[in-house]
Simulated scan of single mutants.
Amino acid sequence: MKKLPSSLFILIGLLCFIMFGMMSWGVHIEISWLQSLDLAIIEAVQSNITTSKTAILSTLTEIGNIRLVIGLTIILVLFLFFKKWYATGLWLGGTILFGAAILTKIIKKVVDRERPDILPLMEKTTESFPSGHATAATVFYGIIGLAIILLMRGLWKRIVIGFITLGLIGFILVTRIYLGVHYPTDVIAGFLYGASVVFVSFGVYCKLSLLLRHVLERFGLADQSELFSEDSVLEQRS
């Protein structure tokens, strides 16, 4: 059966990061067409604001909150450790911690973009670019969705999981615009950066998973992960 090379994941991740970098630069130098795009999308998304919709979306948007994502990650990592999937647990936890939390915070401080003040429905005072919710949701739900897709048999099942994953992430992105706490370019940038983290991390893990297993064995940890290596699970399954 045809194998899916890990280098393809890394290439996709790098392309996403390049697009993120281009958008970051455009925001930094305040390109006029990006500003016009922001205003047009905000106007379209906030064209039908209601009290009930705002209350619902203010709650549902928190499924992308970095604190919730970190909490869910801890629970998932503990479960993986209990199943003796040590390599997978370390990879997942490390990706979320550094990719979705630490590096995002650093980027926010560097760009230091102010929140939009057009029609805010929630009060936020931290930096706006990139959206923390968009980044955290893309990394956390994206990495889980991609893992399920690669482990699952049947093309239609993979397609369904892909649509569900993208739909969930897209929903969170739209809620941040609707609530007036982010510019559209904030959430698009968060998605691009998050996608780059997911694909690069996955590609690197595919290449180094067997090495990580050997290192863990030296510490007396018999890893039983369903490894995403180029010699195992990353084969295309029909």
Rank of each mutant, 00 (worst) to 15 (best):
Met1Arg: 11
Lys2Glu: 15
Lys3Gln: 10
Leu8Asp: 05
Phe9Val: 07
Phe9Tyr: 13
Cys16Arg: 02
Phe17Glu: 07
Phe17Thr: 09
Ile18Lys: 08
Met19Val: 02
Met19Ile: 04
Phe20Ala: 06
Met22Gly: 05
Met22Tyr: 12
Ser24Pro: 00
Ser24Asp: 03
Val27Asn: 10
His28Arg: 14
His28Thr: 15
His28Tyr: 15
Ile29Arg: 05
Glu30Gly: 02
Ile31Gln: 04
Ile31Gly: 01
Ile31Pro: 02
Ser32Arg: 11
Ser32Cys: 02
Trp33Thr: 12
Trp33Glu: 09
Ser36Asp: 15
Leu37Asn: 06
Ile41Phe: 07
Glu43Gln: 11
Ser52Val: 10
Ala55Asn: 13
Leu57Glu: 08
Thr59Gly: 05
Thr61Ile: 07
Glu62Ser: 14
Ile63Trp: 14
Asn65Ser: 09
Val69Met: 07
Thr73Asp: 05
Leu76Tyr: 09
Val77Ala: 04
Leu80Met: 14
Thr88Cys: 04
Thr88Pro: 05
Gly89Pro: 14
Leu92His: 15
Thr95Ala: 14
Ala101Asn: 12
Leu103Ser: 10
Thr104Asn: 15
Thr104Phe: 02
Ile106Ala: 12
Ile106Thr: 12
Lys109Val: 04
Val110Asp: 10
Val111Phe: 03
Arg115Leu: 06
Asp117Thr: 06
Leu121His: 06
Glu123Asn: 11
Glu123Cys: 00
Lys124Trp: 07
Phe129Trp: 00
Pro130Ala: 08
Ala136Glu: 07
Val139Trp: 00
Ile143Arg: 05
Gly154Leu: 02
Gly154Val: 01
Gly154Thr: 02
Trp156Lys: 10
Trp156Tyr: 09
Ile159Ala: 13
Ile161Arg: 02
Ile164Leu: 15
Ile164Gly: 11
Leu166Phe: 03
Gly167Lys: 01
Gly167Val: 00
Gly170Trp: 04
Ile172His: 00
Ile172Gly: 03
Leu173Arg: 00
Leu173Trp: 00
Arg176Phe: 01
Gly180Asn: 07
His182Ser: 06
Tyr183Met: 03
Pro184Tyr: 06
Ile188Arg: 05
Ala189Gln: 08
Gly190Ser: 14
Phe191Gln: 01
Phe191Met: 10
Phe191Thr: 03
Gly194Leu: 06
Gly194Glu: 05
Val197Asp: 03
Val200Thr: 06
Ser201His: 06
Gly203Ser: 11
Gly203Lys: 09
Val204Ser: 11
Tyr205Ala: 00
Tyr205Phe: 08
Tyr205Arg: 00
Leu208Ile: 10
Arg213His: 05
His214Phe: 08
Val215Thr: 00
Val215Trp: 10
Arg218Met: 12
Gly220Tyr: 01
Gly220Cys: 04
Leu221Gly: 01
Ala222Thr: 14
Ala222Lys: 15
Ala222Pro: 09
Gln224Pro: 02
Ser225Leu: 09
Phe228Thr: 03
Ser229His: 09
Asp231Gln: 12
Ser232Leu: 11
Val233Thr: 13
